[in-house]
Simulated scan of single mutants.
Amino acid sequence: MARPVDGKREEFRKYLEKTGVIDALTKVLVSLYEEESKPDDALSYILKSLCDSSAVKAEVDGLKAQLAESAAKNKELRVEIAKLKGEEPPADDEPAPAEAPAEAPAEAPADGEAPAEPPADAPPEEAPAAEEPPAE
């Protein structure tokens, strides 16, 4: 009689086979076996081999192309903004200016947190008067 664990194992094996995991691992292990000089760190070799797959390379190439397109669009928009503001367009090698507020308002601490330290250039505050203990 088949135990329930055997059924789960077989289902998992079919899943790994269907998704290509078994083929990928087999190819990597065969390439490791066929290496003339075995690497000192077999695990690193396996990880590197799995990460160097063509699917990953294709995704990286696609992301690089997308980044180049975004950078070009960013440059176009910065030039357009400069023209609308009546400023000189930024040079090609000039990084985009950081748009940050001059001074952000201090946030109130969340419940249970200690209040934030005052800035170093803030005037000193007077300490609140200590309460006297009640008379007995």
Rank of each mutant, 00 (worst) to 15 (best):
K27M: 01
E17F: 07
K8R: 13
L77C: 07
A108Y: 01
Y45S: 01
A108G: 06
D111P: 05
S44V: 06
P124V: 06
K18A: 03
V5M: 11
V79P: 00
P115Y: 09
E36C: 07
D92T: 04
K27I: 01
R9G: 00
P105H: 00
L25Q: 09
Q66C: 13
V30K: 05
V28T: 06
P105D: 04
E125G: 15
Y45W: 13
P134M: 06
L77H: 04
P119D: 10
C51P: 01
E76L: 07
E76V: 07
I22P: 01
K57F: 06
F12C: 10
A116K: 01
K8M: 11
E11L: 10
A135Y: 12
Y15S: 06
D92V: 05
S53Q: 04
P95S: 00
I22S: 13
A96C: 02
L84M: 11
V21I: 12
S37N: 14
L43W: 09
L32F: 11
L67I: 00
P4C: 08
A96D: 11
S44W: 07
L67G: 03
D41A: 07
K18Y: 03
A71K: 12
D40Y: 12
E59H: 09
D6V: 10
S44C: 05
K64M: 13
M1E: 15
I46P: 01
A91Y: 01
R78L: 04
K57C: 04
V79E: 08
G112L: 02
E131R: 08
L25N: 09
K8S: 05
E87Q: 15
S70D: 02
D121H: 12
P128F: 02
G20S: 00
P95H: 08
A24L: 08
L63Q: 05
L43K: 12
K73S: 15
T26E: 09
T26H: 11
E87P: 10
A55C: 11
A104G: 08
Y15A: 08
K75D: 05
P90I: 08
P134D: 12
V21N: 07
D6L: 13
C51W: 09
L50K: 02
S53E: 03
V5L: 15
S37E: 15
Y45I: 00
P101D: 04
E80V: 05
A24F: 00
E99S: 11
L16V: 02
R9A: 08
C51T: 09
A65D: 14
A130L: 13
A100Y: 06
V56N: 12
A116C: 00
P128N: 05
K18H: 02
A42E: 14
V30T: 11
P134T: 14
E126I: 04
T19R: 14
S70W: 02
K14G: 03
Y15K: 14
G62H: 02
E80P: 09
R13M: 03
R9V: 15
G86D: 10
L77A: 12
P118Q: 03
A108D: 11
E136F: 09
P118I: 02
I46N: 00
A135G: 10
Y33I: 01
A130Q: 05
L47P: 06
V5W: 13
K75Y: 07
E107H: 00
V60S: 04
M1G: 15
A106M: 10
E132C: 02
L63T: 07
